[in-house]
């Protein structure tokens, strides 16, 4: 799945254009960064309410495709700048995390790559 398709399904604004060549291969939802650090995957779309700079560090560590913020959350400029540098797309959706995960799953984005 492309990042554009994720953004369309999520009705999301793209706050940072990452590396749009990255294929979105799987999804995950969690707000504890230490937890995600142990479970992240390449190409992951990660749904979280955390907007701290460490989110981008964890996402780039795993070469994730995008970070998806629910409930219309925003991210600070400096954090978005880092996301662009690291090639991580940041999307902000008006939908809840629950709804986002349901939508993405229904459209074929599962929790494991492949």
């Amino acid at each position: 799945m492309t990042i554009e398709l994720v953004a369309r399904l999520a009705q999301a604004n793209i706050l940072a254009h990452g590396d749009h060549a990255r294929d979105v291969t799987c999804g995950y939802a969690c707000d504890l960064l230490s937890w995600v650090m142990a479970r992240g995957q390449k190409g992951m779309a990660w749904v979280t309410v955390q907007t701290h700079l460490n989110v981008i560090a964890v996402a780039s560590l795993h070469e994730m495709a995008c970070v998806l913020l629910p409930d219309g959350l925003e991210m600070e400029g400096a954090v978005l700048e880092k996301a662009r540098e690291e090639g991580i797309a940041v999307l902000s959706s008006p939908l809840s995390a629950y709804r986002l995960c349901g939508l993405l799953y229904q459209n074929g984005l599962h929790d494991l790559p492949g």
């Binding site: 960064l33 230490s34 460490n54």
Partner: peptide, 11 residues
């Protein structure tokens, strides 16, 4: 801090 944010941010 480490439990929530994964590591200690230098900033």
């Amino acid at each position: 801090l480490v439990q929530v944010l994964g590591f200690i941010p230098q900033s």
